[in-house]
Design a protein around this nucleic acid. Sequence first.
RNA 1: UCCUCCUUAGCUCAGUUGGUUAGAGCACAUGACUGUUAAUCAUGGGGUCCAAGGUUCAAGUCCUUGAGGAGGAGCCA
Length: 488
Amino acid sequence: MKLFTNKKMKRIPVIDLLKAGEVGATVTTSGWVRTKRESKNVAFIALNDGSIIHNIQVVVDMESAIAGVLGRISTGAAIAVTGKLTESGGSGQKVELAAEHIVVLGEADPEKYPLQPKKHSLEFLREIAHLRFRTNTFSAVTRVRHAMIFAIHKYFTEKGFFNIHTPIITASDCEGAGEMFRVSTLDPINPPRTEDGAVDYSKDFFGKQTNLTVSGQLEAELAALAMTKVYTFGPTFRAENSNTSRHLAEFWMIEPEIAFADITDDMDLAEDFLRYLVAYALEHCPDDLEFLAKRLEDEEKNKKVEERSPMGLIDKLRFVVDNEFVRLTYTEAIDILRNSNYNKKKKFQYPIEAWGADLQSEHERYLVEKHFEKPVILTDYPKEIKAFYMYQNDDGKTVRAMDILFPGIGEIVGGSQREDRHNHLLTRMREMGLPEKEMWWYLETRVYGSVPHAGFGLGFERLMLFVTGMGNIRDVIAFPRAPKSAEF
RNA sequence: UCCUCCUUAGCUCAGUUGGUUAGAGCACAUGACUGUUAAUCAUGGGGUCCAAGGUUCAAGUCCUUGAGGAGGAGCCA
């Protein structure tokens, strides 16, 4: 959109004015008003266009002809400003824009506009998700989110991976990753029925029952068993009734899959990948991270001293970049937990007893936040608590699973070496009652040129939680989808 | 889905053992003042106390049900 075609003025983003603006130059920019401060001789407008966390200060001389437009300018209004970039007379910024011409592009009734120049609760902002991009916090999260998306593709590209678009609609319901959303074009009131009264899905759009995907892993495996290194990065859907600050019904997941690789290669990849992403954020988003760190610090002040994080956001991120993750087996973890003072003093709600039980959140948190105080990779879980496709160890009891646990977030990565031996896979599928006939294509990859391979899934929004220091997953995605929540 | 807590002005919250006209800060409006930084000062407007039902002479306050929200748990990424 050309706003000033007749004046031949090109719009300059606020970020360029602040970072590379030439003092003395006459420029045009535009954005949304954050605050306006008027006085007898001069008025100040803090203008933001989302290109950077900082605002450009627009200065209006109250004696000038353009001062009359100020009455239409209030928090939330959109304006375009032409003026001279000057060194700032105030102390908050290096440069400012001395306005010579202002166009009000869109007014915002100050009596009704919900965003005030003050701190709003994240819960309130969630209710006005259509406007929350206009806040410092959410625009910072959005810019960091973009940087992470880019860094993910950059990392894999540099490592020789190929991106695969796996299907969003799927007919296989045996991925074992939870409840699925049904996809259907049948009339919900009066669906076609078979002779015995059941809904006749053969009349449905795809001729069978279909759902939204809960994972692209199985398809990614097919690709990896030809392309060697692939990854998916797509939307994922879980119809679980999960009401937590760490779950979404619609989220984005990164799933690399590598052939000629075992569980150790898988862990090496995951760890290198995570540390790369965190380092990327530190290098490319310093302004936004600094703001988010400050926000977190202010938030922590409201907490009890013992609940506060010992490290600030930036320190926490640097710590992950600088320190290797701890790797240990499930069995070793059980021993540590069983011998811990926490267990002996019965501080666990679920005491550690027999080998074989799944770890509770409190156990994972103890390992990560109390015992090791750094990210932990747990491997070789009992096969009973893990999925059918995981490689079975020689002990007959465990599988080559690996979960990466992060402080404050819990499980951020779940992965495994895949079972590549046809007979082992088939036996396990039968034990677990999976429909082997429908999975013929998956099994066939273990018949023709089967090789050891491995992969993992990284929850993108959980990564975002860690990198931004936000506490609720609904605040790191623009339009969160969760039980009873699909507004916007 | 389970447990705990919350819902009072545009926002964030206070509101005593149930008792007369429900308060504060911020925001907003008006004025003053000032190269200001979420400016400051003064004045003012602004309320279906989440909804429905109940107890009571009397309910923002107590009880029941429902709807939202938060934290924790389970499921998991």
